[in-house]
């Protein structure tokens, strides 16, 4: 009994050690980025480098808050993420309802085909999308047009996965509830809106979050389709990097500003994230 208790204890300690190590690795680059963002140019480039800032400064943040990052890019990203995730969840709910409740010739094939769209590399569509944007005349940075268009692109990108997730949530809702609603005189559409959607709300939330974060982090389409003040945070950061001024304290401050919104969303709503990813990948 004594030995088994001892092994159990050792077991526990080693498990915590390994997990702790991985947690440390996960958090370390972020922590160092945070520390760097509070240094100034001189303190960043020291030999040997230091982890903590010798004094806490806000030079980097000052630059970032005076740059296009906070003036335009953050708002553009916020607009794109919100618009596309709301539209995706709306459209995907309707489509998933069909896939979950109806069978018609080819419905399974259509469902698979939509899922198959996820295999198209984002890179494949860039030049054609540029052409479409250019034909529609939405490449000029002035006004919302460019961001409306890219939100539509993100909507198309997020739909397949969202349909998959939301359908698996709908599948788990017993059909008897709708039946009852229909008997009470609801139309199927009303049944969907009043009965099914409230019950599947966590699923919709999960899909919303995934699309929101993916859109926030998207880089390639934004690089190609957006110009000037219409750009988003990721492209804005890339421009910081490729410009002549090399200033890691500014870049890292920009990194912190960019990741903070999604980080907060994640920490507050982590359950929904976990759910979405598990639903999406394991069922369906």
């Amino acid at each position: 009994m004594v030995t088994s208790k001892l092994t159990r204890r050792l077991d526990q300690i080693s498990t915590h050690l390994v997990l702790g190590l991985f947690a440390l690795i996960a958090i370390f680059p972020i922590a160092y980025t945070l520390m760097t963002s509070f240094k100034n140019q001189d303190e960043v480039l020291t030999r040997p480098p230091t982890f903590f800032p010798p004094t806490w400064r806000f030079d980097g943040y000052q630059t970032v808050f005076n740059s296009d990052m906070t003036r335009y890019y953050l708002w553009n990203s916020l607009f794109n993420s919100t618009t596309s995730s709301i539209v995706v969840v709306t459209l995907a709910s309707l489509a998933s309802y069909t896939f979950s409740r109806y069978r018609f010739r080819g419905s399974r094939a259509l469902e698979l085909a939509i899922l198959g769209l996820m295999m198209i590399p984002g890179l494949t569509n860039l030049v054609p999308l540029y052409r479409i944007a250019s034909d529609l005349g939405v490449l000029r940075p002035q006004g919302l047009n460019a961001n409306l268009f890219i939100s539509a692109v993100y909507t198309a990108g997020g739909l397949p996965f969202a349909i998959w997730i939301i359908k698996s949530f709908f599948d788990s809702i017993p059909v008897e509830l709708e039946e009852a609603a229909l008997i009470d005189g609801c139309t199927p559409l009303q049944a969907l809106i009043r009965v099914v959607i409230p019950l599947a709300a966590p699923g919709l939330m999960s899909a919303f979050l995934l699309v929101f974060v993916d859109t926030w982090n998207e880089f390639l389409a934004a690089l190609v389709l957006l110009n000037g003040t219409a750009r988003t945070v990721t492209v804005g950061l890339y421009d910081f990097q490729s410009s002549f001024e090399i200033a890691y304290h500014v870049w890292t401050a920009a990194c912190v500003v960019i990741m903070l919104p999604v980080l907060l969303l994640f920490v507050l709503l982590r359950k929904r994230f976990f759910e979405a990813m598990l639903q999406g990948a394991l069922k369906g």
Binding site: T33, E218, T252, R270
Partner: peptide, 22 residues
């Protein structure tokens, strides 16, 4: 632990890249 290990996933590739590069 799960929450901590999950954090890098929500960080964009460009931001993550900047961190590692630095």
């Amino acid at each position: 632990y799960l929450v901590i290990i999950f954090i890098p996933w929500v960080i964009s590739e460009v931001v993550a890249g900047t961190m590692w590069r630095w």
